[in-house]
Amino acid sequence: MTPNEARTLIQRTLVEVAPDTDISKLSDDADYRQHLELDSLDFLLFVEKLSAGTGIRIEEYDYRELLSVKSASEFLVAHSADTAQTEHPASS
């Protein structure tokens, strides 16, 4: 997964979780839980969708890396490489 793909996926997932919110003004560093007023249930749904969309296992202790678009896309890029290696060891 490229950083751009990760970014697009995160933004799309945020819109799914919080429809009617404007993410165009959301900066890459902003904590989107505050910015989009996500509660803990919204955030859980967000994590669930990200995990399902990428096949990446996300534990509770990983949540702190998922709080801004920038850190979350770095997390997804780093871990999608792991997933690819474990799933297709021959192709890497």
Partner: peptide, 13 residues
């Protein structure tokens, strides 16, 4: 919640 899929995790709420 450890090792559980996200859908089965429980929140403090």
């Amino acid at each position: 919640n450890r090792e559980r899929p996200v859908a089965e995790r429980v929140l403090p709420a």
